[in-house]
Measured scan of single mutants.
Amino acid sequence: MAAGGDHGSPDSYRSPLASRYASPEMCFVFSDRYKFRTWRQLWLWLAEAEQTLGLPITDEQIQEMKSNLENIDFKMAAEEEKRLRHDVMAHVHTFGHCCPKAAGIIHLGATSCYVGDNTDLIILRNALDLLLPKLARVISRLADFAKERASLPTLGFTHFQPAQLTTVGKRCCLWIQDLCMDLQNLKRVRDDLRFRGVKGTTGTQASFLQLFEGDDHKVEQLDKMVTEKAGFKRAFIITGQTYTRKVDIEVLSVLASLGASVHKICTDIRLLANLKEMEEPFEKQQIGSSAMPYKRNPMRSERCCSLARHLMTLVMDPLQTASVQWFERTLDDSANRRICLAEAFLTADTILNTLQNISEGLVVYPKVIERRIRQELPFMATENIIMAMVKAGGSRQDCHEKIRVLSQQAASVVKQEGGDNDLIERIQVDAYFSPIHSQLDHLLDPSSFTGRASQQVQRFLEEEVYPLLKPYESVMKVKAELCL
């Protein structure tokens, strides 16, 4: 049975990233139509530049190519590739079939990587351009969430054990800070992308030097003109047959890092959902379990974690691919890159769409948070109580021993009897502590235990987050809708 299948058929496997999760716009960027249309555009740009620099290419040939950029006979191309065992030459023939007058000058002087690699770089750039505003929107939604809850005390956790208090907004800023680093890295790697350009079979530009009869300047002009037509500021000066596969490492490393950030955020949300302090959106008709109707599973956060793990592992592909590119190139890269580049971007696209949807509907339960604080705060307040007693004339050592005994009794009630923490009640009825009984409410005010959390939130948002989001103001209103 021949390899390949009808990918629109229910009898043929289709990647869930495309069929179930990723956005239509990201799927289109990695589609065959987008790819092969870009090949034709690159052939047109090459012909236009070659004509401008004096090669015998007519206006009629150029116009014929322009008129057929979208006229792609995919069936013919597939048949040609089956016959020739070469995808680029299959599309040269297919393009030439609908451009008979231009057929002889299509791909003039070029090698397969002229269309293959340059198209990949265009796709990487455009895919990054799709991700950047999506990530900015996630940051914006979380920034709104953090600002609104900047002063809401909550129990902090280290080692997932109760620690000092923080605020809900401050905790959210930990998430935002990681995503801001990801946004900066995505922008950097996007701006650092260079075009492969017009380089020939081993990167020496020998074929173009021959076409222009040894004119170095025209060869350099050709490279520059096509690079500018493709919208790049610069091209690699040095290439082998391909652009260095280190570029793929750079791009997928940034995406993998984004995956790590999203995994951490969504894990926190899942843990908070278990504590009943916070939940992701839950639709009115949504079913959490087929057997347990009360369940409210954090399905979206779980999906993000599941896909983020996949995204983090994909960076190993370009690392290994770059390491086995012998001399000017081997074909070890080809099949692998067809999979890992598309999957990385479709996965990143999915987790950003999902995280935006989550961040637009996060639900906080202040009463649950308050109750958990009441359970733990008495123990945390013991040092403040000791200091207040010393100020009232008591002995630190005597007070410490009193607190120690009462704390152990209260802990026994919590752990052995399943009761509430009654340390404060014990202190309130103990005559030894009568000098500070009137101060206990103040000493137990949760806001006095959150330090500068709310001020940190305000400063972080104003100095770091809002300036970073400013270039994306025009796209901030787009909502994230999930079908599944």
Rank of each mutant, 00 (worst) to 15 (best):
G104Q: 13
R234L: 11
F160S: 07
S19A: 09
A22I: 12
E401Q: 14
L484C: 13
L252K: 04
V368P: 03
L69V: 11
Y432P: 05
N353G: 13
R337F: 02
G394M: 07
V115M: 07
V29L: 11
K402H: 07
L124H: 10
E50T: 09
P16L: 13
P293Y: 03
A3E: 12
F36D: 13
E283W: 03
I62M: 11
M380T: 02
R396W: 02
G116Q: 13
S15L: 15
A230W: 03
D332G: 01
C113I: 06
S359T: 11
R338D: 00
A410G: 07
K75F: 10
V478T: 14
L311T: 02
A235S: 11
M26S: 03
M312T: 09
D349F: 05
C180F: 04
S474A: 15
D268A: 09
Y432K: 06
T52P: 07
L131C: 13
C172M: 06
T313P: 09
M316I: 13
D430I: 10
I424Y: 15
T347R: 04
E220D: 12
G203N: 01
N336C: 11
V168H: 06
R303A: 02
L186R: 02
N357A: 09
L319H: 03
C180E: 06
L275Q: 04
D117A: 00
L186T: 13
H400T: 03
G451Q: 04
E328K: 02
A230M: 02
G156R: 01
Y432C: 09
I249A: 12
K75C: 10
N118S: 04
L314K: 10
Q286E: 03
P133F: 14
R452E: 07
Y34R: 06
V88Q: 05
I339W: 01
L44Q: 13
R338C: 02
E343Q: 12
R338V: 01
K233R: 12
S412R: 14
R459F: 10
E148G: 11
G96D: 07
S31G: 12
L444R: 02
P281D: 08
Y13H: 08
I139L: 14
V219D: 01
V189Y: 08
K295V: 01
Q408I: 08
L331K: 04
T38S: 08
T52Y: 12
R404T: 06
Q210H: 07
V189L: 09
T158N: 00
E70Q: 11
D178I: 01
F460T: 06
K246R: 06
L252V: 15
D349G: 09
S31R: 05
S323I: 02
S23Y: 08
Y114H: 03
K224I: 09
R372T: 06
S67T: 13
R37Q: 15
E279D: 04
L132K: 12
K229A: 07
A47T: 04
K218R: 14
E343M: 05
N274S: 13
Q286K: 03
I122L: 15
Q439P: 04
D420T: 06
H217Q: 08
E463R: 11
A410D: 05
A348N: 06
R196I: 06
C304H: 04
H442C: 13
P471M: 15
G8K: 15
E250L: 11
K246A: 02
L193T: 09
R190C: 10
Y365N: 14
A260N: 00
Q177M: 14
I287S: 06
G169D: 02
T450V: 12
Q325W: 04
E81Q: 09
V465C: 13
G109T: 02
R190H: 13
S67R: 14
I269S: 04
D6C: 07
R37W: 10
W43T: 00
A344N: 00
E302C: 02
M65K: 05
M380F: 08
I369G: 08
R452T: 14
A127M: 01
S412N: 15
A150C: 13
L314N: 08
A206K: 04
V405S: 13
R85D: 00
G203C: 01
S301I: 10
V29W: 06
G169P: 02
N274T: 12
N71W: 11
R190K: 15
S112C: 04
L423I: 08
Y114I: 05
T58N: 12
Q409C: 09
T382P: 01
L44S: 08
D59N: 12
A18Y: 11
Y432F: 15
I265N: 06
K479Y: 11
L183M: 11
I122C: 09
Q210V: 10
G200Q: 05
R337Y: 03
T227P: 06
N384C: 12
S454W: 10
F433G: 04
A291G: 02
T38F: 08
A230L: 03
L346K: 05
A335D: 01
H437G: 07
A453C: 12
V414S: 05
L482G: 07
K477T: 13
N118C: 12
R396L: 05
F145W: 11
H217E: 11
P298K: 00
Q416C: 11
Q285G: 14
Q458D: 15
R20C: 00
P378Q: 04
K295T: 01
T202S: 14
D268C: 10
R270M: 01
R171Y: 01
R337L: 03
E425I: 07
M316N: 11
L55A: 01
S434W: 11
G104E: 06
P435R: 11
I122S: 03
I72M: 12
L142C: 11
D430C: 11
A344Q: 05
A411N: 08
L444N: 02
D420N: 06
A308K: 02
L128K: 07
L42T: 10
V478F: 12
M26I: 09
I105Y: 10
V465R: 03
L469G: 04
S448I: 15
C113V: 12
T58Q: 12
Q416M: 14
L271K: 03
S438H: 12
R374G: 09
V390S: 07
R171E: 02
L44Y: 08
D445K: 11
I386K: 03
T119H: 04
H97K: 14
M278T: 06
L53C: 15
I358E: 07
A335K: 01
Y21H: 03
R371L: 01
C27W: 10
C27E: 12
